[in-house]
Write a protein that binds this DNA or RNA. Structure first.
Lengths: 359, 359
DNA sequence: ACGCAATAAGAGACCGGTCTCTTTTAAAAA
DNA sequence: TTTTTAAAAGAGACCGGTCTCTTATTGCGT
């Protein structure tokens, strides 16, 4: 009767050592690729390992070494092309350096983000990359820092947290985009963002806890005021958290008595829904309404007309933040770096002069 | 002088036990949430844990329990919206069941896929979800199975591997799409796919090792032959592996003497490039050329005209395969299931009758 | 009042690696 | 040939949890 192997106990160093007639320590040296062993013994152990089909238990390895070779990444929403491209950049940089990535998405909810961070720390990731969904409550991020694991921030800076950070100049680029609109003659410009606040109505910057969005709104408002626009705050629309919500916001925006002649969208997912609503209402771009969006998503170049976009270097953003983190993992003692990547605007065909409905 | 804590040794159960004046075993019972402890002691231990800011080491926990609570996922390319949406489905189902996801992308290269699988097994994931990039070499997938860890296949079935699998009826849906084109009068239809083969020229189905694509081509050819199209094999184009390659393929296809009047694209990333090339060459859709693509990507509904697509239930695909795997992880003894999810075609405006250039 | 069972806490092995320290072996120096 | 020293192999502790087994305490029936 053959051996009935009911429970698949996996092959360990001890098993290999026994088969190769050496001590556990020696087998471990060969299998772990450390220390020093004679070529003869090495060959024997390797042969035994192959014969038994030995697979190292990375868990056990991580436990003793304290290193897992894993980088934890917490982003807002993997489905958003912005994040999936950034994650791609992170993964590529990580793999190149021999690290792996474990991904969690927070859905932009602080509670989920906290849970994810806690879990990743528990899994003893070597370092974390986070897109903090809120600047108010960052205790969990401080905890990471305190736990001795390096943390790097992606796309959103936190002034209070002195860690490696890679962002773009959100304020500046929002200003440039807004100026394009203002220069085209627009005086009724709306800004639509996914970020929400108590009351769902924009009042002031103090309500906005997502740093990148606050920067953008700040830039937007600054240029609007410069252009002599009265009460531009009234044209900031919050809460485009999902396609359905975005449609609601866009519908309200476009059906009101004081319909804007131009819209600046905070991300491409929002812009896509706005575009659909515009189409659906029979409005023309750019004759009836001008549109600029953050993120050079696929679709923006194939619409008629193609959309003018703020082209953030998303892949590079991910790649850079990963590289910064890895540098830190390797023991780089330099003070925290705040990298701001250059951003450009791709002018396409979605901006034109406003048609003056008042006249 | 204060304690200079140079190395951040983390707090362990023993530390908590000592602080609470109980044995390590008792503290572990409280902290691990198993066994039985009196309320008084529990309170003490919890207090001590909080005071010391104890964080369980999931690694150590996994090592003894043999369970990591992680599902490993290997997909072709995270950046492709198809996969990122599927991954979203997987993540959602996983989180709902208390599992986490560790993600690796193979770039559709079998060697990378093998390395990823090896690594994930090493990390002792509880189960794996794989989008096998090749049906030829599946030794690493058999290994997973042999290692006792459940495996589930996403989007691509492997006849030789009897594991839980979730796909769509690729052959059937390709037939339906091709028939739409044939019924519109097209007799010169091209099929463009990312899959490549030796010689980069399509000869027969035996060259194609990606099951879903083989099915699709099979369906495509069957309908073409039914429609009396001569040598439809000549219209299958391989190697659209990247945007640049796709442009090359599309350029060649559209500049030849025998330009097709309709194209069926194997995924939305390919279709997007083809769309751009068509535009760039000044051709009109659908007057000069009809286009259908797999995957109802964002952009397909906002072009002019919008694109007719094969609407695979991508999110559900991911969700289902994760649910199947989790069911297995919980010890479900049922034989492997092969789920085929229903797929529909969204007819939009990219299909029209061919303009007969020969007349 | 006594024995018995149930309950709560403790002791220590174990998981599968790494790593330090010790012992053995072989080569080089005297 | 003997001593010195380096190299190679072995023994066993350790990482931080879980879990089995043992021991101490308490309540209960009779």
């Amino acid at each position: 009767m053959k051996k009935t192997a009911p429970k698949t106990r996996s092959i360990t160093v001890s098993d290999v050592a026994r088969a190769a007639n050496v001590s556990k320590a020696t087998a471990a040296r060969v299998l772990g690729g450390y220390g020093v062993v004679s070529d003869m013994i090495r060959t024997d152990v390797m042969a035994a390992a192959k014969a038994l089909d030995y697979r190292p238990n990375e868990l056990a390895r991580s436990m003793t070494t304290g290193r897992s070779g894993i980088i934890g990444v917490v982003v807002g929403d993997i489905e958003n092309p912005f994040f999936s491209l950034a994650v791609r950049g992170i993964s590529d940089a990580a793999r190149a350096a021999g690290f792996n990535v474990i991904l969690a998405n927070s859905g932009e909810r602080i509670e989920v983000e906290k849970a994810a961070v806690r879990l990743l720390i528990g899994k003893r990731v070597d370092g974390l990359i986070v897109t903090p969904s809120e600047s108010r409550d960052i205790s969990h991020l401080r905890d990471i820092h305190r736990s001795g694991r390096p943390l790097a921030l992606l796309d959103r800076a936190l002034p209070d947290l002195d860690v490696d950070t890679v962002t773009v100049d959100d304020r500046g680029i929002a200003m440039r985009a807004t100026r394009i609109l203002a220069d085209a003659g627009h005086r009724n410009i709306a800004y639509v963002t996914a970020v929400d606040a108590a009351g769902h109505e924009y009042r002031d910057l103090g309500q906005i806890y997502t740093s990148s969005v606050r920067e953008r709104i700040d830039g937007f408002l600054t240029v609007c005021r410069d252009a002599g626009i009265d009460r531009p705050e009234n044209h900031v629309r919050l809460g485009a958290t999902s396609p359905a919500e975005t449609r609601r916001v866009a519908d309200k925006l476009l059906s009101g008595p004081n319909r804007p002649t131009a819209i600046l969208a905070s991300d491409s997912v929002i812009a896509l829904e706005i575009f659909k609503v515009i189409r659906q209402r029979g409005l023309r771009i750019p004759e009836d309404i001008s549109l600029i969006t953050f993120h050079d998503a696929d679709w923006t170049s194939v619409t008629t007309p193609p959309i003018t976009v703020i082209d953030q270097p998303v892949y590079a953003l991910g790649k850079s933040v990963a590289e910064l983190l890895i540098r830190r993992l390797k023991g780089d003692p330099r003070p925290a770096e705040r990298l701001i990547l250059p951003t450009s605007i791709v002018e396409r065909g979605s901006v034109g002069p406003p048609t003056n409905r008042e006249l």
